[in-house]
Design a protein around this nucleic acid. Structure first.
Lengths: 224, 224
DNA sequence: CGCAAACTTGAATAGAGTCAACATCGGTGG
DNA sequence: CCACCGATGTTGACTCTATTCAAGTTTGCG
């Protein structure tokens, strides 16, 4: 999951489970805190998240970290480059996964439909990452966090009477490293959204969006 | 071309012309300043740059711009998402291009080797974009510009006696919008590199790298 | 319950942005 | 061929946003 431009209709196709004539490999499970793979590992499988949330990270030599993406249900993770994984991947919650052999992406291996679906997922990934560039390079802290909450609300928000509720399984520093901020700035920005009565923070991991329209216009850069 | 982590060995495979059993479509040419496609156009072709430089951009409603990538010789541009282009693409110099039908990427269409090469290019694109995230999200102005010059030096730098020379066909504001900075900051950072005798600026579009090692360590975050 | 990790808040700082003036470049037309 | 002019680039002064550093608070786990 990347932070895409909220105004444009999000491409939802990836959320559907990939159809396949091939008998499915047994579902994989991962406990919260377990790693699915590490940077440098050889890629054998791609995975579609069935339930739960993954976190993909890259590290710089000096310890600076970038969260590349969060893997939400429907997302496909593990695209190889030069046969290798280029991120670490950790489960933020218990996770269920549908594995697909890498060969299904790379040479079809007798199931053209699955091959095509995986390829389309990779192409959507490129487009979503382009949107995320805009977010990292050109948006303010408030716009970044508002955009992030908007995307999550749309993807995994639950209706709660008139409002919408989001569960955040990741820490503040995960959010910071995803949006290119510090934990302090993320925390302050949450407080600011709370004080302007746009959100309420039920507990650290549960956000209720009180004024979705206000949040959306913050995300799009309408000043305050 | 993205700004990747300098320490890691750059994946050079994409620079080779794509081999193909299929008779090649005639080379396309584009004059400097001409557009190859616009955001929202339907994708019919992908292109591998043969010579010259392209610039891929996305715009935000309020005019903020992100340069998504520069297309240097060997790079493949025009990956579709939902059948559409998601950036504008302009030629910064006269450009020569090898077109490939989109169908060669999407269903092979009788040339599995070409299909595979295009797919691998898309996968490398994802990995390179992940590196670029780190750059946009976590690096300082100096690190960004130093990294940018390192990558260009490696990809398209020319030996000039003991030094290396880079030609920059793009404007300062193109560089700024690529690195998530302002033109003023790009300009000031060039000046700073010049004053520390790491580079000389022969003319606005020609940079000579005097101390590549110093530039590399700036790129990697060694403080001054 | 106790403790470490995660989170929040505050004050001070630094790095990049903004605004404005000036310099340089490059193309056009006299 | 040179002078002019707009576009592009540089520099300076100032501002402001986000970071840093530090102190507290809350959370959740053993």
């Amino acid at each position: 999951m990347y932070v895409t431009i909220p105004s444009e209709c999000t491409i939802e196709a990836s959320i559907a489970p990939l159809a396949s004539a091939t008998p499915k490999t047994a579902e994989a499970r991962l406990k919260s805190g377990a790693y699915l793979y590490f940077e440098g590992d050889e890629v054998e499988w791609l995975y579609q998240v069935t339930s739960g949330v993954l976190r993909l990270t890259r590290l710089l030599a000096d310890g600076r970290r970038q969260v590349i993406a969060f893997g939400y249900p429907g997302d496909i993770v593990g695209f190889p480059a030069n046969d290798l994984h280029h991120t670490d991947c950790e489960a933020l919650t218990d996770v269920r996964l549908q594995p697909f052999r890498r060969s299904h992406l790379e040479n079809g291996e007798g199931d053209p439909e699955l091959h095509c679906a995986l390829l389309q997922a990779a192409l959507r990934e490129i487009s979503a990452m382009q949107d995320h560039f805009m977010m990292l390079g050109r948006k303010s802290a408030t716009e970044k966090l508002a955009s992030f909450l908007c995307v999550l609300s749309k993807r995994v928000g639950e209706d709660l009477g008139a409002y919408r509720q989001i569960t955040l399984p990741m820490s503040r520093s995960d959010i910071a490293d995803f949006l290119g901020l510090t934990t302090e700035t993320v925390s302050r920005t949450f407080t600011q959204l709370r004080k302007s009565r746009i959100i309420t923070i039920d507990n650290i991991h549960t956000i209720i969006i009180q004024r979705p329209t206000a949040l959306l216009s913050l995300a799009e850069g309408d000043h305050d």
